Simulated scan of single mutants.
Amino acid sequence: TFPLTDPEVAFGYAMGVVNNRFVFMATDAAHGSEPWVSDGTAAGTHLLVDLKEGPESTGLGPQSHVVAAGTLFFCGEYTEYPSKHLWATDGTIGGTYRVMETPISPLIAAGDKVVCALYDYETREHLDAYDLWLSDGTPEGTRSLLSHTAVRYTPDPHPYEYFAPVFLPARRLLLFPGDDGYKGSEPWALFIPPEPTPRFTMTPEGCQPSRTVTLDASSTTTPEGTAIASYAWDMGDGTTLEGVRIEHTYAADASGVQHICLTVANDAGYAVTRCRDFCIHNRFLRGDANASAALDIADAIFLLSHLFARGPAPDCADAADANDDEKLDIADAVKILGHLFASEGPLPPPFGTCGIETVEDALDCRAFKPCGP
């Protein structure tokens, strides 16, 4: 038996277990009350996300989290927006993200998805009326369930008469207290379609020189009692492929963003499509930050304006990264000026002639017109 956190960290309450990681609320002086995660070791116990930066707490409540299909959904405030929004996590820092700006709170797991509640400001008959939403953890997979009806979810219509929503997986029915404005709050049933939830990884990600992409949809889920019938890929260049894992190499003259879509169908007759962008790195000239086809003082001015005067960002960050250190800062402007006026020698390649990054880096080059495709 051993402690997982420092004495300065106070445990709050459990949020759930996802992918063999325990997510919980905890409080410390530097971050306030925020989500933490532990793999069962002291070294693997740490802050998961600081939604409200600094010592101010995020404002999560003990009822605002649900685990569905290996994803923990929770509702919390964060620095940029004061209201509570829907978040999701797989238990890792990189896998923690905001799903929607809409202030919806998770209520109950419905198979591999989660049902959420959104306060209905337009309903005047009730002081406590909500729309119900369904989410698979993506913005495009989050939608209203009641917007086409007059029914609204009423979680606490009368004292001592509350019942929580219940999901019946065998019949795909969500039972909840609702009011259509005529008979008061009564039990209602809502059918949740047994749709698959497409998920896929992409290697490599971001804008990289590689023209070969590997896609893996093995994390796709479909409701209990159904089976996946097909995986159909549209690679964005006219190529279509099938299979749970595929590899595709784009043509030598392909560049820029390729819109890749996966359509998953199950044996219940439902099909859902999800898309992501794969970016093939464009050719560029090192130091030509403003993409004018010339390296001059205007490039240093353009970069300084972006960094310190809210000027436009370069379309090709790699071109503006004059010292090739995988970040844009004042050192890049100094590097350009040193080359132009202090005889400090050439910039890192590609310099003088168009080329691409030969190794993967943290920057991208979505467009650079002087070098064409």
Rank of each mutant, 00 (worst) to 15 (best):
H65K: 11
F2D: 06
R124N: 10
D180E: 13
H339F: 04
R274F: 08
I280S: 02
S185D: 12
L241K: 06
D179T: 02
V67A: 06
A265P: 00
P314R: 05
E247N: 07
D179N: 09
I246T: 12
Y182H: 12
P103H: 08
A42H: 14
A331E: 12
F163K: 03
Q208V: 14
A117K: 12
V18A: 08
T89E: 00
V257L: 07
G54K: 11
P35R: 14
P204L: 07
P7T: 15
A309F: 15
V359I: 13
H126P: 00
L118Y: 08
P82L: 15
C116L: 01
C371W: 00
T239A: 14
W188S: 10
H306S: 15
C316Q: 08
G178Q: 02
N20L: 04
T1A: 15
Y121F: 13
I260P: 03
T240H: 10
R172D: 04
T197F: 00
A170Q: 08
F2M: 04
G243D: 00
T92I: 06
C261S: 11
R98Y: 09
D315W: 11
T203G: 01
H126I: 04
F341Q: 15
S292P: 11
N20M: 09
A268N: 02
F200N: 00
V272M: 14
S147L: 10
L174S: 01
T201Y: 08
W133V: 01
E224H: 07
L340A: 10
C261K: 01
T92Q: 12
D315L: 15
P348V: 03
I356H: 14
P350Q: 06
G16K: 03
V257C: 03
E77S: 15
L4R: 04
R274W: 08
A227L: 14
F278C: 03
I280L: 09
S219H: 13
I336L: 11
L4E: 05
E224N: 08
G16R: 00
M235S: 01
F176G: 04
M235V: 07
G287D: 12
S64Y: 12
Y121L: 06
N290L: 15
S33H: 09
V66P: 07
C279D: 09
R283Y: 01
S64M: 13
G70N: 07
V9D: 05
Y153K: 02
Y182F: 14
D253L: 13
K335R: 15
D321R: 03
V23R: 06
D296L: 14
R171K: 11
D364Q: 12
I246A: 05
S83F: 12
L86F: 09
L241P: 00
W87Y: 11
G345D: 09
P177Y: 10
G352L: 10
C275H: 05
G184M: 04
L145W: 08
F167L: 04
A117W: 04
T226C: 08
H158T: 13
E140G: 01
F191N: 05
T221P: 02
E357Y: 06
P348H: 01
V9L: 12
P103R: 09
G225H: 04
P350N: 11
P349C: 03
K369R: 15
L175G: 02
A88D: 00
G184D: 04
T58L: 15
G12P: 00
